[in-house]
Amino acid sequence: MTNVSQNRPLSPHLTIYKQIPTMVMSIVHRVTGMALYAGTLLVAWWLVAAASGEAYFEWVNGIFGSFLGRLVLFGYTWALVHHMLGGIRHFIWDTGRGFDPQTSTKMAWATLAGSIILTILIWIAGYAARF
């Protein structure tokens, strides 16, 4: 008796499929959703610091104001915007529209481009509001 399972292919995985924009944006949507948990903990930490007193708040602000802190906050902003736009894309799909390959690919690229552009505009507006 031969073992039939040895001749069967492994279950399909990401390395087998051609990576198309909609697939990549779906994965990025999930990753940004997970990143928002960590970023929201940072926002909560900042709020707790604000309620804890001026010295602790200044220390936390110093961390967030450092190059690494601003880089993390920039990434959090991008994750938030990208996840929001991905949610809008999924909402459009929930209405039964945008399923044809050309439209779904355009929407995937628009999600990526829109998230980058909006993140940069938010940070420009944030820096402009400081002065």
Results as ranks from 00 to 15, higher is better:
Thr111Ile: 08
Ala35Val: 10
Thr32Ile: 15
Ile117Cys: 06
Ser52Pro: 03
Trp123Met: 09
Met107Trp: 03
Arg30Ser: 11
Ile27Trp: 06
Val31Ala: 10
Leu118His: 04
Tyr17Leu: 09
Glu54Ser: 01
Gln102Phe: 02
Arg97Cys: 05
Ile116Cys: 07
Trp46Lys: 01
Ile88Pro: 02
Tyr17His: 06
Ala55Ser: 15
Ser11Asp: 11
Gln102Gly: 02
Trp78Phe: 13
Ile88Gly: 02
Val72Trp: 11
Ile120Asn: 01
Trp78Ile: 08
Val24Gln: 03
Ala79Cys: 09
His29Thr: 15
Val4Ile: 06
Glu58Ile: 10
Trp109Arg: 07
Tyr56Asn: 08
Lys106Ser: 10
Ala129Asp: 09
Met107Cys: 04
Thr95Pro: 02
Trp93Leu: 14
Phe57Asn: 13
Asn3Gln: 08
Glu58His: 09
Ala129Lys: 07
Val4Ala: 06
Ser115Ala: 14
Leu47Pro: 00
Phe67Val: 15
Asn61Ala: 07
Ile124Thr: 13
Thr15Asp: 14
Trp46His: 04
Thr103Val: 15
Met107Arg: 07
Val60Tyr: 08
Arg70Asp: 03
Gln102Val: 08
Leu112Gly: 01
Thr95Trp: 07
Ala110Cys: 06
Val72Cys: 08
Phe67Asp: 13
Pro101Gln: 09
Arg30His: 13
Ala49Trp: 00
Gly86Asn: 04
Thr77Trp: 00
Leu71Met: 10
Leu112Cys: 02
Ile117Ser: 08
Ala49Asp: 05
Glu54Pro: 00
His90Arg: 14
Ser5His: 11
Thr95Leu: 13
Trp93Gln: 15
Phe99His: 10
Gly87Met: 02
Ala55Arg: 14
Gly33Glu: 12
Val31Asp: 07
Arg70Met: 05
Pro12Ala: 15
Ile63Asp: 05
Arg89Gln: 09
Thr111Val: 11
Gln102Arg: 08
Ser26Ile: 04
Ser26Met: 10
Thr15Lys: 09
Trp109Gly: 03
Tyr56Asp: 12
Phe64Arg: 14
Ala79Met: 06
Ile120Ala: 11
Ile88Phe: 05
His83Asn: 13
Asn3Val: 06
Ala113Arg: 13
Arg97Asp: 06
Thr15Tyr: 12
Arg89Ser: 06
Ala128His: 04
Ile116Gly: 04
Gly39Glu: 06
Val24Trp: 00
Leu10Gly: 01
Gly33Gln: 07
Phe74Ile: 15
Phe74Arg: 04
Thr32Glu: 15
Pro101Phe: 05
Gly75Asn: 02
Lys106Arg: 15
Leu118Gln: 04
Ile120Cys: 04
Met23His: 00
Ile120Leu: 09
